[in-house]
Computed example of a mutant assay.
Amino acid sequence: MEIFLFFVAHWYLSLLMQTFFLHRYAAHKMFTMSPVWEKFFYTLTWIFQGSSFLSPYAYGVMHRLHHAYADTEEDPHSPGFSSSVVDMMWKTKNYYNTILNHQDTIEPKFKRGVPHWAFMERLGDSWVSRLGWGVLYTLFYIHFATAWWMFLLLPIHYLMGPVHGVIINWYAHRYGYVNFKVDDTAKNLIPFDFLMMGESYHNNHHKFGGRANFGIKWHEFDPTYPLIRLLNALHVIKLKANNDLKYM
């Protein structure tokens, strides 16, 4: 039971920071927050994503490029230009590291307003941090696992952020249904998104890139959106009045 609860908690807490902070805030600026709250959520991202910490800066810039050049050769992660899931993940990693290490030649407009906390970027990307979190996950499993097969879940913990990314960037561009005609292959992966906290409504999101609620149809419940509304009501964030506008 402990292993199950730990896995579910890690899955959804890591995913929460990816969809709420990295995606909807860092990349799309669907809402604003104070510098103090920004550092708070930066820190939560490091804690919840752990060994697979994704830089809000690199993620934000790369995701903006994905929207601008979806399913073209300039898309950082298009299934149409990769031979396999592993090939796409490897290309994405290389692109991500180029941005993270400021070795890119990307136009400044894609970087405008993307959060950047140098200390946490260095800490989260350090091997000391990544290995440290990985050791903690392993020790937890050693203590609580009751069957050998449970240890097969550990690689998912180690790579939780990229696993979440590939589910959308590969599978939601190949499988699912379409609500709107868009200039790329983005699809809604599942009709009721119990798995990806709204991220599965990828076709909706590509149609309305700045819309904070990814669900459109009556059955498309976006679990992250009520949290956004709650944080807005508590004045932790300020939801933009017209969040249907795209980031550019």
Results as ranks from 00 to 15, higher is better:
residue 139 L to A: 14
residue 223 P to F: 03
residue 7 F to P: 09
residue 147 A to C: 09
residue 138 T to F: 13
residue 103 Q to S: 12
residue 110 F to R: 00
residue 5 L to C: 12
residue 239 L to I: 04
residue 155 P to D: 02
residue 171 Y to V: 00
residue 177 Y to Q: 14
residue 108 P to I: 10
residue 247 Y to D: 02
residue 223 P to C: 10
residue 91 K to T: 02
residue 199 E to H: 07
residue 135 V to I: 13
residue 204 N to K: 13
residue 182 V to W: 12
residue 101 N to M: 06
residue 236 V to C: 08
residue 84 S to A: 02
residue 13 L to A: 05
residue 61 V to H: 02
residue 215 G to H: 08
residue 57 Y to F: 04
residue 61 V to Q: 00
residue 132 G to T: 03
residue 200 S to G: 10
residue 87 D to Y: 02
residue 184 D to V: 04
residue 84 S to T: 05
residue 67 H to W: 06
residue 167 I to A: 08
residue 118 A to C: 09
residue 86 V to S: 06
residue 29 K to T: 02
residue 122 R to D: 12
residue 63 H to R: 07
residue 122 R to K: 15
residue 73 E to R: 05
residue 106 I to P: 01
residue 169 N to W: 08
residue 154 L to T: 02
residue 128 V to I: 15
residue 149 W to Y: 04
residue 72 T to R: 01
residue 71 D to C: 03
residue 138 T to N: 06
residue 20 F to P: 02
residue 24 R to K: 10
residue 241 A to R: 13
residue 34 S to Q: 04
residue 172 A to T: 04
residue 15 L to T: 09
residue 245 L to M: 11
residue 49 Q to H: 02
residue 176 G to Q: 04
residue 193 D to R: 05
residue 15 L to Q: 11
residue 96 Y to W: 09
residue 50 G to N: 04
residue 151 F to N: 03
residue 175 Y to F: 14
residue 130 R to Y: 06
residue 224 T to W: 05
residue 206 H to W: 14
residue 217 K to T: 09
residue 68 A to R: 14
residue 122 R to L: 12
residue 133 W to S: 07
residue 234 L to K: 11
residue 54 L to S: 15
residue 17 M to T: 15
residue 150 M to H: 13
residue 60 G to D: 10
residue 110 F to K: 06
residue 118 A to H: 09
residue 187 K to D: 00
residue 161 G to H: 05
residue 239 L to P: 06
residue 77 H to M: 03
residue 241 A to Y: 00
residue 30 M to V: 13
residue 169 N to Y: 02
residue 134 G to V: 01
residue 235 H to S: 08
residue 82 S to L: 02
residue 67 H to S: 06
residue 67 H to F: 05
residue 143 H to G: 00
residue 231 L to Q: 08
residue 241 A to V: 09
residue 19 T to E: 15
residue 218 W to C: 07
residue 114 V to C: 07
residue 95 Y to H: 13
residue 205 H to T: 09
residue 18 Q to D: 08
residue 55 S to C: 06
residue 101 N to P: 00
residue 216 I to S: 04
residue 231 L to Y: 08
residue 170 W to R: 03
residue 207 K to F: 14
residue 8 V to M: 14
residue 87 D to G: 02
residue 52 S to Q: 06
residue 72 T to N: 00
residue 51 S to T: 15
residue 124 G to R: 08
residue 42 Y to A: 06
residue 153 L to I: 09
residue 113 G to T: 13
residue 237 I to P: 03
residue 243 N to Y: 09
residue 40 F to C: 14
residue 243 N to G: 05
residue 211 R to P: 12
residue 89 M to R: 11
residue 129 S to G: 03
residue 121 E to V: 12
residue 20 F to H: 07
